[in-house]
Design a binder for these strands. Sequence first.
DNA 1: GTGGTCTAGACCACC
DNA 2: GTGGTCTAGACCACC
Lengths: 128, 128, 128, 128
Amino acid sequence: MKFDNSQPIYMQIIDEFKKGIIRAELKAGDKIPSQREYAQMVKVNPNTVQRAYREMENLGMVETLRGQGTFVRAGEDKRQEMAQEMANTIIEQFISQMRSLGYEDRTILAMLEKHLEDLEEDEEVDRV
Amino acid sequence: MKFDNSQPIYMQIIDEFKKGIIRAELKAGDKIPSQREYAQMVKVNPNTVQRAYREMENLGMVETLRGQGTFVRAGEDKRQEMAQEMANTIIEQFISQMRSLGYEDRTILAMLEKHLEDLEEDEEVDRV
Amino acid sequence: MKFDNSQPIYMQIIDEFKKGIIRAELKAGDKIPSQREYAQMVKVNPNTVQRAYREMENLGMVETLRGQGTFVRAGEDKRQEMAQEMANTIIEQFISQMRSLGYEDRTILAMLEKHLEDLEEDEEVDRV
Amino acid sequence: MKFDNSQPIYMQIIDEFKKGIIRAELKAGDKIPSQREYAQMVKVNPNTVQRAYREMENLGMVETLRGQGTFVRAGEDKRQEMAQEMANTIIEQFISQMRSLGYEDRTILAMLEKHLEDLEEDEEVDRV
DNA sequence: GTGGTCTAGACCACC
DNA sequence: GTGGTCTAGACCACC
């Protein structure tokens, strides 16, 4: 895992787990690594990991059972909610970046549409 | 200026000037800060600034006159080309982020459209 | 390798590799020394070598694979182009030197012709 | 004056005066700067200048009169001889450079001829 | 003052 | 081990 310093590391850790849950790589009931294990894996201070885990607990993403470990709690509903939320953040950031280049909204939409069509064509070709 | 470590600093500097040119805040003939000045402004080593300036010269964005300074070279054509290029990068990054959340292309498009409409309504309200 | 100060060292390094490619001593796919190795060989700072290697990459002469090394990329086409270019530089420098001695163009040509004939005779003798 | 380290500085000084004489900027009887003056002008150790002046005396280029200074001695004959000599050096260096790129003698001649024609055309245009 | 080159050396990323 | 980035600081060339 590599972290940049655009955001606190503990938030970047949370985002990692969020993505895992959203992509359904992590499902309700799955055990995630212990705080110590994870801290070693990603070479981060255990305190930072602890903070991330605590916040995930507050967010209802995971549940910690003393002496047993930390488990994913998010069910399908939660998963969708999280996906929506993350998507909104990404979309807003995208719009703001494109607007700051001076593009108008309808142009942004048209450019995205064009891009998606081009990509689909390319992928068509790849499959053939 | 704050730099994150998602990218080399010299590239982030280039991106700053790119944005300036794209937004037409910097126009052909404008003098940009001397390497030393800029290095002090953004608190990085002058060598790092020089690398950025040198690459901008190679990209045809600026022209350097020894003993005189560095000047914006990009005319309107170049400006549009740069905007296109930067937009493509942003769009591609956006698509890949959204796809990695599991959204299909038509859904991505629909979500963006919805978002833009909502924003426009909000801005309508603000103006009134 | 000895460098003079008629030109920056990094350019002289580039010229060395250019000559190697032009003379076909270095062919497409050949690995050239690592930056550190070469720096030790020619006793210059690794940063200077890196600048030379980076510019050679920009010129399309070599390809750099991180963690693996730097490889000659120039094929036969590129080789000829580079030879032409280098020849032009040499010829122009020659003309300017001769003119600055006050010789007229036709005299320069005649002197060169004479010289080449003399050399060929000498080499004839050597072979016999 | 700027010296490179491809040759001893005293030789580069001699070449400077040679060029002056060849171009007839310095004529027989002309006084050249005193050794001290010249050393200051070109920022070189006076001993180096002395060596250059001594060798020029040996070469018959100048004459030193104690208490009066150093004077150009070379007459027209000497001038031509020096020009010839310097031209030969330049031509030989040129041939060797071009051959090392792999060009054959007749090609070298053809390329030079072509280049001179092109230059003449350009200069024609400039005059018009 | 402005840019250009170079050294010395640290630290990181990828293999 | 190999390349990539960055800092610190010296010295040079051109204006």
